[in-house]
Simulated scan of single mutants.
Amino acid sequence: MAGIITLIAAGALLVVWSSVSTSDSTTEFSFHKEPHGTWYIDLPDYPGPKGDLAMVAGADDMLDYLAKGKTRVEVEMSEQPFAGALELVRVKLGEPGGGAFYKPTNHQIESVWLCDVTLYALGKFPEKIYFKAVG
């Protein structure tokens, strides 16, 4: 299934966010855009097919916004607000295999869908995700 986070939303060097994320911590994920235009989260240890790591359904639009024309972007994320962060609020959980829908509260993008790879990357579908580009 194609997707994650997004972000959002959206990547990358973390296997389970909840095991290292505290109220004061943030985690960075890397994303890259291939020449054909598809964004992917960089999760080198992910056990499934590459297609699962594709960013679609609004997550790609958020990455385009964050990357400002570049083909690679590092995104800092947390379940707690932090300086300069945008906010995603979970509005609907899908069935197993159905991901979750998020609403950006301080951005014009209408909706961001995060697939079940989010569970691999973050350990759950957080109620809120705060994020910003850092590289």
Results as ranks from 00 to 15, higher is better:
K70S: 12
A57T: 05
F131E: 07
H36S: 13
S25G: 10
P81F: 06
A83N: 11
K103R: 14
A100E: 00
T6L: 13
R90H: 05
G135T: 06
S111M: 13
A54H: 05
A67Y: 07
K92R: 13
W113L: 06
T22N: 09
G58C: 01
Y120R: 06
E110G: 15
T38S: 12
L13H: 10
Y46F: 08
K132V: 11
D64S: 02
A100G: 05
H107V: 09
V20E: 00
V75N: 01
G97I: 05
K33N: 00
L122H: 03
E79F: 13
L122E: 01
V89P: 02
W17G: 09
F29K: 09
A12T: 10
I5N: 06
I8L: 10
L88N: 03
Y40T: 01
L122C: 06
S111L: 13
M62V: 11
T118I: 09
V16Q: 12
A54D: 04
P96A: 10
D45W: 15
M62Y: 03
C115T: 05
D52P: 08
F31A: 12
P47Q: 04
K70I: 08
Y120E: 00
E127V: 10
A9M: 08
L88I: 06
L119R: 07
G123E: 01
P49R: 10
A2D: 10
K92Y: 04
A85D: 08
F101M: 11
A57N: 13
L86V: 06
E87V: 09
K92I: 01
G97C: 03
I41S: 08
A10V: 11
L114M: 15
V75M: 02
P44I: 12
F101I: 05
T38V: 15
K103V: 03
Y40R: 07
K50W: 07
P35L: 14
A67L: 11
P35R: 15
L114C: 15
V134R: 01
V16K: 15
D116M: 07
K33M: 07
P81Y: 08
I109P: 05
Y120Q: 00
I8A: 09
C115F: 02
S30F: 12
V15W: 08
M62F: 07
E76V: 07
S78K: 04
I8M: 09
V134P: 04
D52A: 15
G94R: 02
D45P: 04
R72Y: 12
N106Y: 08
K70T: 07
G48S: 08
Y102L: 08
T71M: 15
E95W: 10
L43K: 04
E76S: 06
W113N: 03
D60T: 01
L7H: 02
V89Y: 09
A57S: 14
K50A: 14
K132N: 09
K70M: 14
W113V: 02
K124T: 14
E95Q: 13
L119Q: 00
D45A: 14
G94P: 00
V89N: 10
F31S: 09
A121F: 11
I109N: 06
K124E: 05
F31R: 04
S78V: 05
D61W: 03
W39I: 00
D42M: 11
Y40D: 04
Y120C: 04
I41E: 04
S111R: 14
Q108C: 13
H36V: 11
L93K: 12
G69I: 14
K132S: 09
K68Q: 11
F82K: 03
E110D: 14
Y120H: 06
D64N: 10
P104R: 02
F82P: 00
F131L: 12
Y120N: 02
